[in-house]
């Protein structure tokens, strides 16, 4: 009798402390493409240089949940820096409407530009110490390829998504997408500009669902 009462109160306490409509979690693994070779920095006509190879960026995937979600109360902000003559990070997923800052952390000029239909801009040449840091707002979903007009080898991607629920995979392909509302959605994974895979998922409150993309 005592034990059944204890069990009842324990269950009641658990129900009261757990949030109503606990968020779902998606985990899994994406098979990523083979790494590409790091770009070679052309230094043919710039003789006084430090030398050195450009860092290799491993392939990463963006996992995101497609559905209808309420708009953000304030425009989200993100940052994509230029450091050691590379973009950091080399792949940045953002929600549509995000303000992205492009701080220059090198001691030389950079000139970031994009000809992509989703966002066409040219920041001009700017230094590390310039304020305000050049910023662009990305409103249109799609893929934006960033380049530097001075350093031909520099390239990065901004994936503009119409969802607040996305995550960048680990270099080994594993991902964890938390804080998801229950419901039926399309789970998508962006692997490269030619490859996007998708799976319908049904999320329930407090549950963890594992979805792999072989």
């Amino acid at each position: 009798m005592i034990s059944s009462r204890l069990l009842f109160f324990a269950a009641l306490a658990l129900a009261l402390t757990a949030p109503a409509g606990a968020e779902a979690v998606l985990t899994g693994r994406v098979v990523l493409p083979k790494p590409t070779a790091a770009p070679v920095r052309s230094q043919r006509y710039e003789i006084v240089t430090k030398g050195g190879a450009v860092a290799t960026n491993p392939p990463l995937a963006v996992v995101y949940l497609e559905g209808v979600f309420p708009p953000a109360a304030t425009p989200p902000r993100a940052q994509l820096a230029q450091k050691d003559l590379t973009f950091v990070p080399s792949l940045l997923p953002v929600r549509a409407g995000t303000m992205v800052e492009f701080p220059n952390q090198d001691d030389t000029y950079h000139n970031i530009f994009s000809f992509s239909p989703a966002k066409r801009f040219d920041l001009g040449r700017y230094r590390a110490e310039e304020r305000p840091v050049p910023t662009q707002r990305f409103d249109t979903p799609g893929l934006v390829t960033l380049r530097c007009d001075i350093h031909e080898h520099m390239r990065a991607l901004i994936l503009v998504l119409d969802t607040p629920h996305f995550v960048l995979s680990e270099p080994d392909g594993r991902y964890r997408l938390g804080g998801l509302p229950a419901g039926r959605y399309l789970l998508k994974v962006w692997i490269d500009s030619k490859t996007t895979r998708e799976r319908p998922v049904e999320l329930t409150d407090g549950a963890t669902l594992t979805v792999d993309f072989p």
Binding site: V40, R41, S42, Q43, R44, T49, G51, G52, A53
Partner: peptide, 9 residues
Amino acid sequence: DAQYGAHVY
């Protein structure tokens, strides 16, 4: 263009 390590281009 070829880069070998940090010191040869």
